[in-house]
Design a binder for these strands. Structure first.
Length: 154
DNA sequence: GCCAACGTTGGC
DNA sequence: GCCAACGTTGGC
């Protein structure tokens, strides 16, 4: 297991953007209801891992800045709260189906790196972001992370 | 707002 | 276990 891993996490800025994370300092990444994304959080993320914070459904969509994992996965209590929009009747405190990690603000890029720009870089062609459009949490290789960081003048 | 991609559900 | 129907994501 490498000391520090790298991830990309998507959020809609109209709902919760990097500005919101900066304001609060940290947040629990709740509401993820995709098994692959859950598995990354629950099984692979470690405190200190670096996160590219991606704005989806935005104008333009792209990588807005950096965050880091500040607490390892715990059960997502919204999953058994009937009043939550994320409620899942198959999840319970005794058998949690969904998990979340805590994410801390690090920095805004000096410039947002738009998706269209990432698509134009041959070295990034096999990024999950560009090929698995529906996956909201995904691992990023150190090389890809460095390229994107430089594009954002981090 | 449209719609393609694709993950999930449920009948069989 | 297959696969059609359905719902959601997310770019444009």
């Amino acid at each position: 297991m490498p000391l520090q891993q790298h991830w990309l996490m998507k959020s809609e800025p109209d709902v919760f953007g990097l500005d919101d994370l900066q304001r609060g300092g940290t947040t629990w990444w709740d509401g993820v209801r995709n098994y692959q994304a859950r598995n990354f959080m629950r099984d692979n993320m470690q405190v200190g891992d670096a996160v590219l914070f991606y704005h989806s459904n935005a104008k333009p969509s792209g990588v807005a800045g950096l965050a880091r994992i500040s607490a390892a996965a715990t059960p997502d209590a919204s999953s058994w709260n009937p009043d939550s929009e994320y409620f899942d009747p198959k999840s319970s405190p005794q058998a949690p189906r969904w998990w979340h990690v805590q994410v801390a603000y690090v920095s805004h890029f000096k410039r947002l790196v738009p998706l269209a720009e990432l698509r134009d870089i041959p070295e990034l062609a096999d990024m999950a972001l560009l090929n698995r459009s529906r996956l909201s949490i995904q691992p990023v290789s150190p090389a890809h992370y460095d390229i994107i960081c430089q594009l954002g003048q981090c």
